[in-house]
Write a protein that binds this DNA or RNA. Sequence first.
DNA 1: TTTATTAATCGCAATATTGCAATATAGTAA
DNA 2: TTACTATATTGCAATATTGCGATTAATAAA
Lengths: 109, 109
Amino acid sequence: MGLTKSEIFTEKQNHLAGVFKALAHPARIAILQHIMKQNACICNDLVGELGLAQATISQHLKELKNTGIIKGNIEGTSVCYCIDEKVWLKLKKELNAFFTDDMVANKCC
Amino acid sequence: MGLTKSEIFTEKQNHLAGVFKALAHPARIAILQHIMKQNACICNDLVGELGLAQATISQHLKELKNTGIIKGNIEGTSVCYCIDEKVWLKLKKELNAFFTDDMVANKCC
DNA sequence: TTTATTAATCGCAATATTGCAATATAGTAA
DNA sequence: TTACTATATTGCAATATTGCGATTAATAAA
């Protein structure tokens, strides 16, 4: 049906899946890496850097913004996007918890 | 077009995105958590636990198996799925690196 | 004002994902 | 053998995602 049955899962599970989903595209990975490399903010040099159309990149930025990972400041005619460090560290902790805390010694196969 | 232009990204970016994609569904999160909680392997008690049809769960398991996160051992008539610890730790490192190594002090917005 | 420039949004086509009923396959039990 | 159980696979419908051209909105420069 193409429609995820989110009602049957916990909020935490839906949230985690949502975070992973936001990162589940190479363009968005590339965008984040690009933002991280520049010690300063960048706007849409991305359009030049990545081989994607402006509309496409704008959409990916929107998705990243919707999940809170990045935030944008209008600077004159262009927009400056940066990682939201608070959110970033929170996500890092969450993912780490998923990979660690829930992991019980599991030796069978 | 619905078709990700993976040619224009690095292998690493595509790989990372692929890992995130495998985890980008609450059912797959739930399946992994379920496997982790049981100190032993489980098969398709999942069909009872989660509210999804057998065919659907089998498909999610297949996806997790394809990315290498879990592996399945045939045990008589049923199949025992477990986390592949080697892969799991590798992924944990990779994701951690993504969230840490590439992160440069980034104070602007 | 007019003209660029930057970025967001709209609308569409192509493709992917999700979910499930039905069926197929494989092993066990009788 | 037949019957049963557990999984996998197939085929389909509904929905989501990806990508982009075209347009729009907003600001800057002339």
